[in-house]
């Protein structure tokens, strides 16, 4: 069982968290023309990297949405930061 560092609460049991997707994917502005390829890329393409990954997770108990860097091989957690500051 992993311990994930919620940027607000600190380390908590992995059961309190939910994977929300790979980080760094911006939603295309759908009020403008978005090509089928562009949209399909947004929906479907995953990097699914081995090793260092950057992902979005939600801490379900406090609803914090945050970006976490971790190693998908060793399961080591490298960093976490709130997404909201990320976006600013």
């Amino acid at each position: 069982m992993q311990l994930f560092p919620c940027p607000f609460c600190g380390p908590r049991d992995e059961h309190e968290f939910h994977f929300a997707g790979e980080a760094g994917k911006a939603r295309p502005d759908t009020t403008r023309t978005v090509s089928p390829e562009g949209w399909a890329h947004y929906l479907n393409d995953q990097r699914n990297e081995k090793g260092r990954v950057r992902e979005v997770w939600m801490h379900l108990t406090c609803s914090e949405l945050f970006a976490m860097e971790r190693d998908s091989v060793t399961m080591e957690v490298l960093s976490s930061a709130p997404l909201r500051e990320d976006a600013q």
């Binding site: 939603r27 979005v56 914090e64 949405l65 997404l83």
Partner: peptide, 14 residues
Amino acid sequence: RAHLETWRQDGNDP
């Protein structure tokens, strides 16, 4: 609720 919270914090002004 989780769906709303996700979009609230991702792409909107929370």
